[in-house]
Every structure is written in structure tokens, then in C-alpha cells.
Design a protein around this nucleic acid. Structure first.
Length: 719
DNA sequence: AAGGCAAATGTTTTT
DNA sequence: CATTTGCCTT
């Protein structure tokens, strides 16, 4: 058997991972070490050498984009028709769980036409529950309830399992969770976390069903394993059972979604729970210069509790890392533009360059500078296609055609465009629906029959119901795209947004037209579901790219989070300042600070040839001036790798920032040190700012939390 | 019920 | 600074 195409060009570690006998595997894959390649080749190997059929392999990724990419690369490597790939389960955890629930809705106790709630729908539902329960949202913000519910679901806990202690917050949140659960049950609605929770429970309750899938899958492969949360891990473990081999690929140093419930510990647990585990480390980096790698290694070294991995390359040393201290954020943007222009002038492609930043808010100034300089750019992130207001409204009409009892959709468009159905009418409907156990649609029919409303309200509502009837009638024999076009037009949405003044209205009209285009291009991957429902599912599960396809040569601008998994010859990391990066909200807690550091590691390792760091000494944040020290991450890079760029303006500045680094100050206090304060007790030094009499340190006290201390007043003793 | 004005409020993002 | 939310007026 010829397997040369599978192993040619792989290094020893990669080859070990690809050619290992069928067994549980942990591949610790550093940034740029050829992780995806190994994964794809491993699947091909299993199919060719271990003779696994495509239906016996399950591959899980985190994003739809990654799933698409894997499918594509597999297709190239396997050189088999589309049909083969279609029988293979490749997808996100959520996508796979959804597929499962669609096939086994009965066993999962769901109505056949259950709907997926995205986070926007979820928040709306929670708001309605707040009204029903008369909960004060200024005391208990609704976003917190959403966070609470999702957090517990991600940990596999239903409302009934939530500890009912005497904490008032917990009590209120639990009551919301309970009501939320009931509302979802009543309306046949399933949120993202529920997809996993529900399918996990499905297996526990239906052993014969579980056995079926356990027999089917011989090997499960998981990408980005460091980003799995508790329920995903449990899901995996149950499905794998005793027979199935599980291969996971991940990098603990690139875990940047802890705030969303991801558990790095899953990597440790895996080695226990799935014993024996064949561990491979991919440490050879094919992406970056050794200078960049040294910087990345030095930064990440400051984190404790790592599995330990050191990237190396046999490639060139490359250029030093430039560090630019900008006068303010405008100057920083100007410098970035200069760099880009020079890069392009030197004959490089604009799309080979990326500007990375910690938070989306930073993109605005950069964007303006690029517009002014007439340099093409592309911003990732922001609102995604299927999450746009006008698109969600159009989808709501489509949903109502599919299922009139979808209360979420009903609430959304009953008065959009405005047709005289206001809050009062709606509130009457809600109460009536709740009392009778009706959906809002049923309640409307009932209320009209009973003459509950004034003539004006009744007419308006009747108008809406008639509209739904006529839409459904007209659309009967149309294909998806025609149906969508008809609905967009006759619902009045198109005219509504055309009447909107300014660019915004026009953009919305264009988006609606694009939605029709998306319908035309839609290829269902599930023949059993009606095409409209399949499309709605896809829209919920894959919110689409943030920006429509703009594939011109343009500089890429995005947050560090969205940059994960990408690489660029030239990277500029902007806003390297304390309070911004590491973010102020994360600097207090050691665990979250380490996550910020991993984010920095991710940022540095995106760069292939050239890396530039910039920070602004003075930055306008929300209209206010703020002065921030250079990020501690800059100081963590060995000075020998860094080249300080002088400011263009003739402002003389002492290049002293590097001096204030790890050298103990005159008080003998260092970062990370354990200290005792005569009042607050013991704590760890998180941060040091200023020098001489102005030196302040931030200490996280065991009992008092974190505080800023002026060293000249309060003596801190090293412990 | 709808439109206008003042006040509040700002991480990171996928599914 | 810019956008969303809430209250108030027509």
C-alpha cells in the first residue's frame, strides 16, 4: 500500500502522530507546527491503513470555518467524490449535536420542528421572563442572567441542579433559569448550550441509541481541544465509550476562551480518563523567524502551570522586533499606515499584513487613518450577517411561515414594519396566551374571536394575521430563493428600510437582497428536513462571515481573538499598554492575567517574518484622555530582540522603559512576589507602576482582594 | 403608538 | 466618542 503521499514532508513528530496505531492520542501542537495538516493526514491514514470507512470517523472542530477547511483539505487528500465526504461527520460540537437531535427529536423529547435560539433570541426571551416574574433588571442585569444560564448549561447543570442557597443573587437567577427552561420547553426552543446538554442526556437516557453510535464510530478526532468546556468533554466521553479511539489536538498556551467556559484542565483530565494515551509534541515551528519565536517563548514562560512546550525553528533569525512608542493613538495609527505603505512599496501584498488589537473599539481610529491615507483594509469582526437586525427580521417572517407558533419570531415582527400594534395590545396578548397556554399566534386568533380589542387594535392585528396567510399562500410552490424574495418584498420590510434615510437604510436593503442570494446558493446537507427549515437552522448555527466577501488586496485588521489560527508575514500588534492589554478587567486575577498572556502569545506567533509592537503614551478612551504604562508583556520580551523606533516628532524621550522592568526597585518589591501589609495581611504583587516616591504596586490580598498601595507610605515586607 | 431627546454605558467571541 | 436605552412628548 502506498502511503507516501500521507507522510512525505512530515517531520518525525508529525509522522509519529499521523502513523500511530489506532489508540487514544494527545497531540500537543504549538503555534505554526502543522497541526491541521497532521489532523487531516491522520484521518486519511486511518481510512487507508486501518481501513476505516468514512462513516466510522467523527471529526470535531470549533468553528464552521474550520470544519469547512478540514472538509476541503480532506477532499483534496482523499481524492474521493463528494459523496464519501458527505457521509463523514465533520463539524462543530454544536452542529453535530444538532444533527443528532434532528434525527432523534422524538427520543429527545423535542417537537419535530424545534427551533434554535441564538444569543440574541435568548436575551429577548430572558427579558420577557423578567417581565413575567417582575424582576428588577437594574438590580439583576439580564445579561448576567444569560451568563448564569449559559454558564450552568456549559457545566451540564439544569435549573433543578443549581444550588439553592441563601445567596439572593443565586435565588433570583435560579428562578429565571427555571422559568427560562419552562419557556423553551413550551415553545420547542433550543439554545446553543442546550444542543449539547440535550444530546448528552439523550444518550444517557437511551442506551440503545448510544450503543448504536458507539458501534458506528471507531475514531473521534477533536481540534482545538484546549477550548472544550465541561459539557463538550462529557459529551465526548460518553460517546467514545470503551471501544472508540479518541485523538485530541490542542495547545494549552493558546487557550484564550476561559471566560467562555473553556477548561484547559480537560487536557490533563484527558490523560487520566482516556488512559493509555499516546502523547506527541509538535514543537518545530514552520511559520516564524527565530527572533519571533524567542519572543513568544519568553512571554509565555511567565505563566505557571503549563504542560511545557518550547517552539523552535531551523529557519532564519530574521529581523528584530520593532517597538514604537506613539505619542497618542492617532500617532500610532499614522505609524501603522506608514508601515503598511512601505511594506507595499517594497513589493509585498497588502493582504499579507495584519493589524491586531485587543478590543474592537481600537479599530475605529486605525480605520479612519487608513481611509485618509487611501490604503485598502478589511476589518474582521463586528456584526455578522445573520445577526443583523434586518436579516433577523426577514428570518422571523420565514420562521412564522414554517411555524406560526414561534413566539420569538412573532414578537419580533408583529410590529415591524410598524403597523399600529403597540405594547398595550401585545401585553394583552401575552397575558391571554399565558393564561390559556396558547402561543401568541393562537392567542391572537382567540382574542379577535372574542372581541377583546378596540376596533383600531383589532384591525391592526387582523391585518398582520392576514399578511401571514397571504405570505404562506403565495409561497406554497416557490423555491427557497423565490420564497425569500417574496417575503422580503411583501412583508413590507424592503419598503421600510428603503424609506430609512442615510447609508444605513441602503446597506440594509442590500443585505436583504443578499439574503435572497444566500437562499439561492443554499445547499442543504440534510435531505429529510424541509428546505426552509434547513436554511433557518443553518442561519442560526452558522451566523455567516462578519463582512461580505471582500477579497481585494487589503490589510487585515482584527482582534487577537479572531486572529487565532491565522498567519501573516507581517504583523503589527497595536495598543500594547497596561489596562488595554492586559485588559483592565483581567489584570486583577492571576488566572485571567495568564489568559491575557496567552493571548499575547497567540498574537506574537501570528507573525511569520516581521513583528512590530506599538503603544500609545496617551490614548483617548471613550472620549477621555488616559495615560497608560507600556504593557508588561513588552518587558517580558528579552531586550536583545527588540529595536526601539524613535518617534518621528522631535520630542526627546528617555528610552528608559526597559530599565524599569525586572530590576528590583528601591523598595525591593518584584512582580509576583508574596508580601505582607500591616493592615491587609498577605498578598501577591500583581503590578508595579511609577518609580521613586510615586511607585505604586497592586497587590492581591488573600482576604481583602486587590488594592493599589503607594510604597512610600505603606511598607510592604517580603514574605 | 411613534418619534424625539437626554442619560447611561461601555472586553475578548462561537455556537 | 458613539451607540443604545429609557422617558417624555405629540
Amino acid at each position: 500500500m502506498d502511503v507516501s503521499d500521507l507522510i512525505n514532508g512530515l517531520n518525525d513528530a508529525q509522522r509519529d502522530a499521523v502513523c500511530a496505531p489506532l489508540s487514544n492520542q494527545l497531540v500537543l501542537a504549538g503555534a505554526g507546527s502543522g497541526k491541521t495538516r497532521v489532523l487531516v493526514h491522520r484521518i486519511a491514514w486511518l481510512m487507508r491503513v486501518e481501513q476505516l470507512g468514512p462513516h466510522q470517523v467523527l471529526a470535531v472542530t470549533f468553528t464552521n470555518k474550520a470544519a469547512r477547511e478540514m472538509r476541503e483539505r480532506l477532499g483534496q487528500l482523499l481524492d474521493r467524490g463528494d459523496a464519501t465526504l458527505r457521509t463523514m461527520w465533520v463539524g462543530t460540537f454544536h452542529g453535530l449535536a444538532h444533527r443528532l437531535l434532528r434525527s432523534h427529536w422524538r427520543e429527545a423529547n423535542l417537537p419535530q420542528n424545534f427551533q434554535i435560539l441564538d444569543s440574541d433570541d435568548q436575551l429577548r426571551l430572558i427579558k420577557r421572563i423578567y417581565q413575567e416574574l417582575s424582576i428588577d433588571d437594574s438590580r439583576w442585569p439580564q445579561r448576567q442572567a444569560q451568563w448564569f444560564i449559559n454558564g450552568h448549561k456549559d457545566e451540564g447543570r439544569r435549573a433543578a441542579h443549581v444550588q439553592d442557597d441563601f445567596d439572593p443573587f443565586n435565588k433570583v437567577m435560579k428562578s429565571v433559569y427555571l422559568a427560562y427552561e419552562a419557556a423553551c420547553e413550551r415553545g420547542g426552543m433550543v439554545d446553543f448550550a442546550e444542543l449539547l446538554l440535550r444530546s448528552h442526556e439523550l444518550w444517557l437516557k437511551q442506551p440503545q441509541l448510544l450503543a448504536h453510535y458507539q458501534q458506528r464510530f471507531r475514531c473521534i478526532l477533536v481540534d482545538e481541544f484546549q477550548d472544550t468546556n465541561a459539557i463538550q468533554y462529557a459529551w465526548l466521553r460518553v460517546l467514545a465509550g470503551q471501544q472508540c479511539s479518541v485523538a485530541v489536538v490542542g495547545d494549552d498556551d493558546q487557550s484564550i476562551y476561559g471566560w467562555r467556559g473553556a477548561k484547559i484542565e480537560n487536557i490533563h483530565r484527558f490523560q487520566e480518563d482516556f488512559k493509555p494515551v499516546n502523547v506527541t509534541r509538535l514543537e518545530q515551528n514552520y511559520r516564524s523567524t527565530s527572533t519571533i519565536l524567542k519572543a513568544a517563548n519568553a512571554v509565555i514562560e511567565h505563566n505557571g502551570d503549563r504542560l511545557g512546550k518550547t517552539l523552535w525553528t531551523d529557519g532564519a533569525e530574521g529581523e528584530a522586533i520593532d517597538l514604537y512608542a506613539a505619542f497618542n493613538e492617532q500617532d500610532e495609527a499614522r505609524y501603522a499606515v506608514d508601515q503598511v505603505q512601505r511594506w507595499i512599496r517594497d513589493g509585498n501584498g497588502a493582504s499579507d499584513m495584519a493589524l491586531l488589537y485587543r478590543s474592537n473599539a481600537q479599530s475605529r481610529v486605525l480605520e479612519e487613518a487608513f481611509i485618509r491615507a487611501d490604503v485598502p483594509y478589511r476589518i474582521y469582526g463586528g456584526q455578522r450577517f445573520y445577526e443583523r437586525l434586518e436579516i433577523k427580521n426577514a428570518l422571523a417572517y420565514l420562521r412564522l411561515i414554517s411555524n406560526r407558533n414561534d413566539d420569538n419570531a412573532f414578537e419580533r415582527v408583529v410590529n415591524t414594519p410598524t403597523r399600529g400594534i403597540g405594547n398595550k395590545t401585545l401585553e394583552t396578548l401575552r397575558v391571554f396566551a399565558r393564561e390559556q397556554g396558547y402561543s401568541l399566534f393562537e392567542a391572537s386568533v382567540g382574542a379577535l374571536a372574542n372581541n377583546v380589542f378596540t376596533a383600531r387594535a383589532a384591525n391592526a392585528l387582523k391585518g398582520f394575521l392576514t399578511l401571514l396567510d397571504s405570505l404562506e399562500d403565495a409561497v406554497q410552490d416557490m423555491d427557497l430563493a423565490a420564497c425569500c424574495a417574496h417575503v422580503v418584498e411583501h412583508s413590507g420590510l424592503l419598503a421600510f428600510h428603503e424609506a430609512e434615510k442615510g447609508e444605513r437604510g441602503q446597506a440594509r436593503v442590500e443585505n436583504l437582497q443578499e439574503l435572497v442570494g444566500a437562499c439561492r446558493a443554499f445547499e442543504p446537507d440534510d435531505e429529510d428536513t424541509p428546505v426552509l427549515d434547513a436554511f433557518l437552522d443553518r442561519a442560526a448555527l452558522d451566523a455567516g462571515d462578519a463582512q461580505a466577501d471582500d477579497y481585494e488586496e487589503a490589510v487585515q485588521m482584527m482582534t487577537l481573538h479572531s486572529a487565532k489560527g491565522l498567519e501573516f508575514p507581517f504583523v503589527i500588534l497595536c495598543g500594547m499598554e497596561e489596562n488595554l492589554f492586559p485588559h483592565r478587567m483581567s489584570a486583577e486575577e492571576p488566572g485571567r492575567l495568564e489568559e491575557e498572556r496567552r493571548l499575547c502569545y497567540v498574537g506574537i506567533t501570528r507573525a511569520m517574518q516581521k513583528l512590530v509592537l506599538t503603544y500609545a503614551e496617551n490614548r483617548r478612551v471613550y472620549g477621555k484622555e488616559s495615560f497608560n504604562a507600556p504593557s508588561r508583556f513588552i518587558r517580558e520580551i528579552p531586550a536583545g530582540l527588540v529595536h526601539e523606533v524613535r518617534m518621528k516628532a522631535a520630542v526627546q524621550r528617555p528610552a528608559t522603559y526597559l530599565a524599569q522592568d525586572d530590576a528590583p526597585n528601591e523598595f525591593g518589591i518584584q512582580l509576583g512576589q508574596m508580601v505582607r501589609h500591616h493592615v491587609f495581611g498577605e498578598g501577591v504583587v500583581l503590578n508595579i507602576e511609577g518609580r521613586g516616591a510615586a511607585t505604586r504596586v497592586q497587590v492581591n490580598f488573600a482576604n481583602e482582594g486587590s488594592k493599589w498601595i503607594m510604597l512610600q507610605y505603606a511598607k510592604l515586607e517580603p514574605v
